[in-house]
């Protein structure tokens, strides 16, 4: 029997699903091998059990976390798809701002005041804290990045379909910079989060003349103290450094300090 695969959406821009749809060339071959039982609105048929569930998006409300627990209980493998699911992504910045303040920042003062008194707006307060998927359920595999990397997606699916353990090494982005013979951006007077960030993206931002902002999340062994000292030594202010860590990694424990 073909393995049953499902995609579930939480808070995200759906860019990861788009990134996937963009690799049409492999997608058709892939669809021959699996049974796609749930892909948002695309397919309505519901299946009670899934072999691989891809979770896209970060978890904000209690009802979301309940839904996630339900998916977990019906899935053999849970795969967190993309930066929102893996590390909270940019929306987790709001974890550091009081909800009312956040609301004001986005919609203005008037809307903030209305949300306090108008019942129809109250569900907006249900949002508590932006969490990664792993904060709520056990995650078997992470497909990191904003957006996720189609090659890694393929590696994962091929491995699972052939009963192998997919291998995503937990190394820094610097490793991939070396593989591409990149000049380190610190040598160009810029600064970089690559030394503490999960690689796997082939250092795509540096290859294209940018810096790394750790969209794939901080490594479990990230030496944030040493990185902080390095950034300070380049004349970057404490606030700017913190804001940089919080860009993609606010839901991570390391950036709470």
């Amino acid at each position: 029997m073909k393995p049953k695969i499902a995609f579930f959406d939480f808070a995200s821009c759906e860019g990861c699903q788009l990134a996937l749809l963009n690799c049409e060339d492999i997608l058709l071959d892939l669809l021959e091998l699996v049974d796609l039982v749930e892909f948002r609105e695309a397919i309505s048929e519901k299946s009670a059990r899934y072999d691989i569930s891809f979770i896209e998006g970060s978890i904000h409300r209690e009802e979301d976390s309940k839904r996630l627990l339900d998916i977990r209980s019906r899935s053999q493998y849970i795969v967190a798809l993309g930066a929102c699911a893996c590390n909270g992504n940019v929306q987790a910045r709001s974890n550091f701002i009081a909800p009312a303040e956040n609301y004001k920042l986005i919609y203005g003062e008037e809307a903030r005041n209305r949300v306090q008194v108008d019942k129809n707006y109250w569900p907006l307060w249900a949002h508590t804290r932006v969490r990664s998927v792993e904060e709520i359920v056990k995650v078997d595999y992470h497909l990191r990045g904003c957006p996720m990397d189609a090659n890694e997606f393929l590696t994962l699916v091929k491995a699972l379909l052939s009963n192998q353990i997919p291998h995503f090494p937990a190394h820094a982005v610097c490793v991939e910079c070396k593989r591409n013979a990149n000049e380190c951006v610190f040598d160009k007077g810029m600064s970089c989060l690559g030394p503490i960030a999960y690689g796997g993206c082939d250092a795509v931002c540096i290859n294209n003349g940018h810096v790394c902002d750790a969209c794939r999340g901080l490594l479990p062994y990230a030496n944030v103290g040493a990185h902080n000292a390095l950034m300070l030594s380049k004349g970057i202010s404490k606030e700017a450094i913190q804001s940089r860590y919080r860009l993609f990694c606010s839901a991570e424990k390391m950036s709470e300090s």
């Binding site: 610097c174 490793v175 070396k178 030496n223 040493a226 990185h227």
Partner: peptide
């Protein structure tokens, strides 16, 4: 204590 374990020195 200062090291990122990034492997650059090896690579």
């Amino acid at each position: 204590e200062q090291c990122f374990s990034c492997g650059t020195c090896n690579l």
